[in-house]
Write a protein that binds this DNA or RNA. Structure first.
Length: 192
DNA sequence: GTAGTGATTTTCT
DNA sequence: GAAAATCACTACA
């Protein structure tokens, strides 16, 4: 059985909630100039255009969220709060406007020797650690630069809760995280 | 220890 | 002009 299986576009081209849940435990690989950065995904959130007031796509297609309306398997990276970026995986069919927000990963390698959880335990922080900016917006997740690997490890203990950091739609339990990881976010006292 | 607010820029109304 | 899928720092108990 193949140990390091690169995820194909068919992985993303499914129900957003399923993709969000199955992203946990997968490995995010980013081949920047010379350094190969690897992180294990431990926390995600689902954003689905229809019926989701918190989704950027819920108020129609704009230039910023255009990527989300495209085909599955691409990276949607947006700039927020003047200083941070957030990484998403576009899911489902073209024209729907759905994506999975990557909220936290565990550093595996490529982070200057100091692989501390505090480096990547938040949407803005992990983008800073991976050096992701809007230049990577729209990158093909099945290409060579940025992709996911399935390393068929032991099953992940998954838990879900309401999403963090949004003002509407907080009643939807569309946040998924690895209960055994010490790298999940939760800025303040986000009670579960 | 917890709680609150400022930073800083893009994007949309 | 206001809000935004955030984070870090400060104040106070």
């Amino acid at each position: 059985m193949p140990r390091h299986k690169k995820l194909q576009r068919s992985f993303f081209d499914r129900d957003t909630l399923v993709v969000a849940r199955e992203c946990l435990g997968k490995y995010l690989i980013y081949n920047s100039s010379d350094v190969k950065k690897i992180g294990r995904i431990v926390e995600t959130e689902a954003y689905i255009g229809k019926d989701d007031p918190a989704c950027h796509a819920s108020r129609g297609r704009t230039k910023r969220n255009e990527i989300m309306f495209g085909p599955a398997g691409f990276a949607y990276i947006y700039f927020i709060y003047g200083m941070y970026h957030c990484l998403n995986f576009v899911t489902e069919r073209e024209g729907l406007g759905a994506a999975v927000l990557i909220r936290a990963v565990e550093p595996v390698s490529g982070f200057g020797g100091k692989e501390a959880n505090s480096l990547t335990n938040g949407p803005g922080k992990l983008c800073r650690a991976f050096d992701l900016t809007r230049e990577q917006n729209g990158v093909d997740l099945t290409g060579r630069l940025l992709y996911l690997e399935d390393r068929s490890e032991a099953e992940v203990a998954i838990e879900s809760s309401s999403r963090i950091g949004i003002r509407s739609g907080t009643d939807l339990p569309w946040r998924f995280f690895d209960t055994n990881s010490g790298a999940v976010s939760g800025m303040k006292k986000s009670k579960v």
